[in-house]
Design a binder for these strands. Structure first.
Lengths: 365, 365
DNA sequence: CCCGTTGACAGATACGTTTCTGCAAGGTCA
DNA sequence: TGACCTTGCAGAAACGTATCTGTCAACGGG
């Protein structure tokens, strides 16, 4: 028993450690680490030999040990403020899904992975947040004085938000659309198409998107001298949207054009218009904010505003990883992503050429 | 310099370690660990004191160190096989979004978090898979001989798949619908509503869902003596679906009822029917498999088959965590989730009472 | 012939926990 | 009064890696 007891201790069979590789290759642990990580000064022969032995043993470095040693985990948190009773609703609308998808792709391309985390740091039964080693976090639509964000920043972790942070929330960087400009552009577009009284379907929540969009609408109305006509409903309730759409079209001062702030508003408004015998676009012009492709196939196709969630998701992750790998900038970085208005039949009073359906062109999202 | 040099070494300021807490509380690190984790035999006074000191210092235990020591990370991988060129498409359809949402909720409720990972373990530039410590993995629709799944199983990690694993893929457990029964049920439903020739809109991919559904259709046709009428298209291409729907209705042996296997097929088929002047449901009965709520508001509302992705996502995670925390069962656990057919106007030749639109009832998904 | 330099590796330490083992003080029982 | 158990806590050994600090041989210049 001179040196035979260094074989393996309590490790589970099937998982080889760096020590096993070193022993099998006849070199030291240092050499194995350097050979596999491309560091140190090693002749190519040694490097190849070590790599070959590691491959043969099926060696996988322990992510936990590496994280502990280097301080980097390669993990990025992704969190969305909760709307209803569900802990999070990142797929409530197509926007979140697209944005999360793009963020995941961008992160993976740079060697990071996304961890989905709840917005509320409740302790039930353990706090998931403190159980995962994060290099940084993406926060979608943070609320004011968000305790999670504050705590993360206090720990020195970079936080990038999708959506302009409200109040004095000290995020590292943020990405957002110019919602005021988008709303103003849509209202101008509808007015140009002949709308005299434009209504708004908005939400009762106080998130930045809803707030900015609504005030932009009110300001536009004031500027052009139109009385505001809008209905607000809790955006997280799928049934409430249909009811609100109905209310809006049932008003005595019924609008002749409507912009809906949320994804399902298009179909809800279309259904409500059918119930009241209103033709779209002849009697009612329609635009809604959506990333869904179904509005290209409805009867009639509905004009939508795209917030470009893919570009936002990509930008957010790039900014975050830049902050993780580089030095965090002094002032928060702001990045504005332009929106895109996809004009379809529902917002054009005079169809471009003829009244029969034009040939479908492939939609690009 | 007798013992003063144990204060702090190279740790970043702002992050207190367990040693700092122990020193501040005047106890050993063992006592701190036991007090915070509810272990050991400590009087309540000591426990409270330690917790108070830890709170005051803002102590957060290092997840990496804990993972290294305990071997549990509290992280669950979530991966979806790639369809197109994108590394993954988990939000391609509403199904994946809903399923991922439910899986995340279920995981968080039990103290785990989900990490989104690519299906292909390509090395670009580093392998993300080996950079994250996982306790187990959820695989959606794994392909045959999936190298990632094989490697994970070889490492002794539990793997639960959404979708019956093809071939001899050795997963720990799996959850799926009874797709044959679902398709047969829909075809019976359509035949009962008066359909004489039922068509199918299916995919060219070889995943289990597409394969099982298509063969069930073919067997049903053989049983009732109908010639199969179907069109297949690459399901990951959003434009191809519209074209395939058009092709199906343009055939000389045009079907008088169609079942579409994928989410967007409903709107695509509806648009195609309008182009050919076919009334739904009078001239054409329509059913598609979808989780989207828009089909409750289309004109007419379209009957959909729900695969109950929330229940599947929940079940998959429960099974996986059971396997992580308990002893892995010898034989793979199989769990079948029933589907739900939401019958709407598009598949009822005779509307229930009257020809005017019935009052909308709140849909429950 | 000596010394400085460079290449190629090995030893040892630290990352921050959890937990096994140990140890004194005090109480109980024969 | 020992023997023995319980309580309340401390010491120290891992967990598996990355890296800092050597060490040793070869080598070339002066």
């Amino acid at each position: 028993m001179s040196r035979a007891d260094t074989s393996r201790r309590g490790s589970r069979p099937g998982r080889a450690g760096i020590r096993d590789v070193a022993a099998a290759a006849g070199v030291s642990i240092t050499t194995v680490s350097d050979a596999l990580n491309g560091k140190g000064r090693l002749p190519d022969a040694t490097r190849r030999h070590v790599r070959e032995v590691a491959e043969r043993l099926g060696y996988r470095p322990s992510a936990a040990a590496r994280t502990l040693r280097t301080g980097k985990s390669g993990l990025i948190g992704l969190t969305v403020t909760t709307y209803g009773d569900e802990p999070f609703t990142f797929t409530e609308f197509a926007y979140f899904a697209e944005m999360a998808r793009a963020a995941t792709s961008a992160a993976l391309a740079r060697g990071y992975a996304l961890v989905i985390l709840p917005a509320t740091s409740r302790r039930s039964p353990v706090d998931v947040w403190s159980n995962v080693a994060l290099d940084g976090t993406v926060v979608v639509d943070p609320s004011d004085h968000d305790p999670v964000v504050t705590e993360l920043i206090r720990q020195g972790l970079p936080v990038v938000s999708d959506g302009r942070p409200p109040g004095t929330l000290p995020v590292t960087a943020w990405v957002d659309n110019d919602h005021e400009a988008a709303v103003t552009g849509i209202l101008d577009h509808l007015a140009e198409a002949g709308a005299r009284r434009i209504g708004l379907l908005t939400g009762t929540t106080t998130d930045t998107y809803t707030r900015l969009s609504t005030t932009a609408y009110l300001r536009w109305c004031e500027r052009v001298g139109q009385d505001p006509v809008y209905e607000a409903y809790p955006a997280h309730d799928p049934c409430a949207g249909a009811v609100a759409a109905d209310r809006l079209l049932a008003r005595p001062d019924r609008p002749d054009a409507v912009y809906g702030l949320f994804d399902p508003n298009g179909t809800d408004l279309l259904a409500a218009a059918r119930r009241y015998g209103l033709r779209v676009p002849e009697d009612l012009l329609l635009v809604c904010c959506s990333e869904s492709a179904v509005y290209a196939g409805t009867e009639p196709p509905i004009t939508t505003l795209s917030l470009k969630p893919r570009r936002i998701g990509t930008a957010v992750v790039q900014l975050l990883i830049d902050a993780i790998e580089g030095v965090a900038p002094e002032k928060p970085v702001e990045q504005v992503i332009p929106t895109e208005l996809i004009v379809r039949t529902s917002s054009q009073r005079r169809p471009p050429r003829t009244t029969v359906s034009p040939p479908r062109v492939p939609e690009e999202t």
